[in-house]
C-alpha cells in the first residue's frame, strides 16, 4: 500500500503539472476562436448533461492544425527556432565544457566557490540580466567600446537586435544548465582513468578525447537537452536582444495569443511545439535511464 502511494506521487505530479495543462491546451487547440469570455468556443457545459458533452465534442476539430500548414510562417518559424536552439546548444557546449572541466580540475577547496559563481547569476532576475546585455551589446555598449579600444574594429558594429545577440543571450542564460551536469560527471571522473590512458600510450590530448569526453557523455547529453528544450520555445531573449527579422516560434506564439487573440491557433502552435519537443525529451529520458543502469 505504502509502495503504491509512493509510486503515485510522481504520477500525480505529472498528471497535475503536465497532463492536465496539456489537455487543456489541446482542447483549446481544437476549438474555434470567438469574441467572448473565454475567447474560444465551444466550452464544456456540464449543466446541459450528456447533450452538452456531445455538443462540446462535436465542436472540436483539427482545423487549426490544418491552418498551420497553410502559411509558410509557421514551419519557417519552427525550423528557424530549431536552428537557433541547435546552434546555441552547440555554442553553449563549447563554452560550458571548458568551464565545467576547469571547475572539476580546480582544487577541492575552490570548487564550492566556483560552483557558487556559476549559480550566482540566478540570484538576479533573468529579465534584468537580459537588459544588462542590451547595454553591453548596444552600439555604444561596453562590447563595442572594448573592441574599438583594442583596435579590433574601427567603427561600432551592430550586435544588438541581430541573431548574434540572440545566440549570446541564449548561451549566457543557459550556460549554468550546461555547466552543472557536465561538472557533475567530470567531478566523478576517476583521475586514475586518465593516468591509465596515458600509461597505455595516450597523449594528454588523446586521453581527453578517448576517456574524459566519452565518460562525460551523459553530462553533455543532459546539458544539451537542458539548453535545447527551453531554447526552442524561447521568447524573451529573441524579443529583447533579437531584431525584428529574428523568427522564433515563441514570438509567433505570442503574436497569435496576444495580437491575434486567437487562442485556438496559439494553442495549436504550442501543441506542435510540444510534439517537436517530445522526441528530444524521450531521448533525454532514455539517456538518463541508461545512465542509471550503468551506475546501478
Amino acid at each position: 500500500m505504502r509502495r503504491l502511494v509512493l509510486i503515485a506521487v510522481p504520477y500525480l505530479w505529472l498528471l497535475t503539472l503536465f497532463l492536465i495543462p496539456f489537455l487543456i491546451v489541446l482542447k483549446i487547440s481544437l476549438s474555434d476562436t470567438a469574441l467572448s469570455i473565454p475567447p474560444y468556443t465551444p466550452t464544456l457545459d456540464l449543466g446541459a448533461g450528456w447533450t452538452g458533452v456531445k455538443e462540446f465534442f462535436a465542436g472540436l476539430d483539427f482545423e487549426n492544425f490544418w491552418f498551420l500548414t497553410t502559411d509558410e510562417l509557421y514551419w519557417k518559424a519552427y525550423l528557424s527556432s530549431l536552428q537557433i536552439a541547435f546552434l546555441s546548444t552547440i555554442m553553449t557546449l563549447i563554452v560550458g565544457y571548458p568551464i565545467a572541466y576547469g571547475m572539476a580540475q580546480a582544487p577541492d577547496e575552490w570548487r564550492p566557490t566556483l560552483m557558487l559563481l556559476v549559480i550566482l547569476p540566478f540570484w538576479t532576475s533573468f529579465l534584468i540580466r537580459v537588459y544588462a546585455w542590451m547595454g553591453i551589446l548596444s552600439r555604444e555598449g561596453l562590447l563595442n567600446q572594448f573592441l574599438l579600444w583594442t583596435g579590433v574594429i574601427d567603427a561600432p558594429v551592430k550586435i544588438l537586435n541581430t541573431d548574434t545577440a540572440v545566440y549570446i543571450g541564449i548561451v549566457y542564460t543557459y550556460l549554468p544548465f550546461m555547466v552543472l551536469p557536465i561538472y557533475a560527471t567530470l567531478e566523478k571522473l576517476d583521475e586514475s582513468l586518465l593516468e591509465a590512458a596515458e600509461d597505455l600510450g595516450c597523449s594528454r590530448a588523446s586521453a581527453f578525447w578517448l576517456v574524459t569526453v566519452p565518460l562525460s557523455k551523459s553530462g553533455i547529453i543532459a546539458g544539451c537537452f537542458l539548453v535545447f528544450i527551453p531554447a526552442l520555445g524561447e521568447f524573451v531573449i529573441p524579443s529583447l536582444l533579437g531584431g525584428s527579422q529574428t523568427l522564433m516560434i515563441g514570438k509567433v506564439l505570442w503574436e497569435e495569443f496576444f495580437n491575434n487573440r486567437d487562442w485556438p491557433i496559439a494553442s495549436a502552435v504550442a501543441v506542435v511545439l510540444l510534439l517537436i519537443l517530445i522526441v528530444p525529451i524521450i531521448l533525454f529520458q532514455r539517456n538518463e535511464q541508461k545512465q542509471r543502469e550503468a551506475e546501478g
Binding site: L35, E72, L73, K76, Q245, L247, E255, N260, D262
Partner: peptide, 19 residues
C-alpha cells in the same frame, strides 16, 4: 475583426521579418 486582425498581424510579421 478576427479575420482582418489575422491579416494585419501576418502582414506585420512579414514586414518585420521578411517571412
Amino acid at each position: 475583426d478576427a479575420r482582418v486582425q489575422r491579416v494585419v498581424t501576418r502582414l506585420w510579421t512579414k514586414i518585420k521579418s521578411g517571412t
